[in-house]
């Protein structure tokens, strides 16, 4: 069976896997962005807290994803819970680090001006600092999204959702007629999804980054 025959015969399964892959990454990224930017916003004003946050999230990123899944399975069981946890944890570092860097990189004169016209700390953060740091944060989100795509593929071995299942089913049936087709379908599907997500994030940047600071 050639690749296209395979794709058409397994259309439903592939579409459902692709949808699950996209949906899992999307939901995890939403959680990771909220958490990551939150941690960044809470820690950027203190040198020490910022360092600890970066160090902690950096340590998580150092741990191989397959090992982290292995550690989560005894606690959370198989399937969606360890997958989502791992995805969110891994996605944190680039977002936290870029939030801290971006927020700290705001010209002190601007912060001073914001204070001078009577903005509170929160207003300053929301109306001045975050919008200026946003392009940097968005870069972090792009990196995290790319990473999540690949990690989710591995999580399929722990019964996670998505296109990784195609790859592992191919590996398991090495030598069978459809093994290669499955691996190719899973891998190419993930690469395509990664590009679509990245393009969407670039578009989001176009729409949300103030024209005044666009590079």
């Amino acid at each position: 069976m050639n690749f296209w025959d395979y794709v058409s015969s397994r259309q439903d399964q592939l579409i459902s896997d692709t949808f699950q892959h996209a949906s899992a990454v999307f939901q995890c990224m939403v959680v990771a962005v909220v958490l990551g930017v939150g941690i960044g916003a809470l820690t950027y004003r203190s040198d020490r807290a910022g360092r600890i946050a970066t160090l902690a999230t950096g340590t998580i990123l150092t741990i191989p994803s397959y090992a982290l899944l292995g550690l989560l399975i005894p606690v959370l069981g198989l399937g969606v819970p360890p997958t989502v946890t791992a995805l969110v944890l891994y996605a944190l570092l680039p977002i936290v680090r870029n939030s801290v860097v971006g927020l700290r990189g705001v010209d002190p004169a601007l912060v001073d001006a914001a204070r001078g016209i009577g903005m509170t700390g929160l207003a300053r953060l929301v109306r001045v600092e975050l919008p200026i740091a946003w392009p940097t944060i968005l870069t972090g989100i792009r990196v995290s999204t790319q990473m999540s795509m690949g990690i989710l593929a591995i999580a399929a071995y722990a019964s996670g959702p998505g296109l990784g299942n195609e790859i592992f089913s191919g590996i398991a049936s090495l030598g069978s007629a459809n093994a290669l087709n499955e691996v190719v379908a899973g891998t190419v599907g993930i690469v395509l999804l990664a590009f679509i997500f990245d393009a969407a994030l670039v578009l989001l940047g176009r729409l949300t980054v103030s024209a005044g600071i666009r590079a």
Partner: peptide
């Protein structure tokens, strides 16, 4: 960039074939 987008497990599996 393409390399970054490719899942490591997929790459390894393809190489195995």
């Amino acid at each position: 960039n393409l390399g970054q987008a490719t899942p490591a497990i997929g790459l390894l599996a393809l190489l195995t074939f």
